[in-house]
C-alpha cells in the first residue's frame, strides 16, 4: 500500500466516528448519515494528494456538511429512544433523556440551522470558520445561530426535564 493510502486509512479510522456522529445529528437517520460520511470520505480520497498536507479533516467536514445541506430532503425524523445507547456511561438514563431532547430540539430546526448548531457546538468552530465552511456570511451564521438557539430555548422551556444536566 502506498504511503498516501496508508495515511488515508489511518485518517478514516481517526476521523470517521465524529464525522458520522455529526452527520447523524444533522440528518437524524443512520443510513443517510453513513451515506454522507462515505461520500465525503470518497471525495476526500479523490483529492487526497492535494488535501493531505493541508487539513483533510476540515476538508472532509466541509464536503460532508454541504452535501447534507444540499441533499437534505425531509425533516429530521428518527432518534430512537428505545434503544440502548452504544456507550455505557455511569447513567444511561441521562443519555436517554439527552437523546430524547435532541430528537425534539433538532427536529425543530432547518437543515442549515442544524448544520450551524453542529459546527458550533460539536466541532466548536468559531463563527468565521462556520461561515467559510458553509459559504455564507458571518452575519448569516450569527442570525441563523440566534434563530436556532431561540427554537432550542423554546423546546427547553416546554420540556420538564433537562438533558445532559447535572445529576
Amino acid at each position: 500500500m502506498a504511503r498516501g493510502d496508508a495515511e488515508f486509512v489511518e485518517f478514516v479510522h481517526a476521523a470517521s466516528g465524529r464525522l458520522a456522529h455529526a452527520a447523524y445529528l444533522m440528518t437524524g437517520d443512520h443510513h443517510q448519515a453513513e451515506d454522507a460520511t462515505q461520500t465525503a470520505l470518497a471525495r476526500t480520497y479523490a483529492s487526497w494528494s492535494r488535501v493531505r498536507r493541508d487539513d483533510p479533516y476540515a476538508y472532509t467536514r466541509r464536503v460532508m456538511v454541504n452535501y447534507i445541506v444540499d441533499n437534505w430532503r425531509r425533516p429530521i425524523r428518527e432518534y430512537p429512544t428505545d434503544e440502548i445507547p452504544h456507550r455505557h456511561r455511569d447513567d444511561v438514563a441521562d443519555e436517554v433523556t439527552a437523546r430524547r431532547w435532541l430528537q425534539i430540539a433538532l427536529g425543530t430546526l432547518t437543515a442549515r440551522e442544524r448544520a450551524i448548531v453542529v459546527l458550533r457546538y460539536l466541532f466548536d468552530l468559531p463563527e468565521l470558520q462556520v461561515a467559510r465552511e458553509l459559504e455564507v456570511s458571518v452575519g448569516t451564521v450569527k442570525s441563523t445561530s440566534s434563530r436556532a438557539l431561540g427554537k432550542l430555548r423554546q423546546t427547553l422551556v416546554e420540556l420538564p426535564s433537562t438533558p445532559g444536566g447535572q445529576r
Binding site: 493510502d5 488515508f8 486509512v9 478514516v12 479510522h13 476521523a15 470517521s16 466516528g17 465524529r18 464525522l19 458520522a20 456522529h21 447523524y24 445529528l25 453513513e34 460520511t37 462515505q38 470520505l41 470518497a42 480520497y45 445507547p85 452504544h86 456507550r87 456511561r89 441521562d94 443519555e95 439527552a98 437523546r99 431532547w101 435532541l102 430540539a105 448548531v117 453542529v118 457546538y121 460539536l122 438557539l149 432550542l152 427547553l156 433537562t162 438533558p163 445532559g164 444536566g165
Partner: peptide
C-alpha cells in the same frame, strides 16, 4: 451548555466502522 452537553453525551462508539477499501 445543555445543547453542547447533550450533543456530546449522545456521541456513540461504534461509528466509523466503514469499509475503507470501498471508499478508496
Amino acid at each position: 451548555d445543555r445543547l453542547r452537553a447533550a450533543i456530546r453525551a449522545t456521541e456513540p462508539e461504534g461509528w466509523g466502522q466503514f469499509d475503507v477499501e470501498a471508499i478508496m
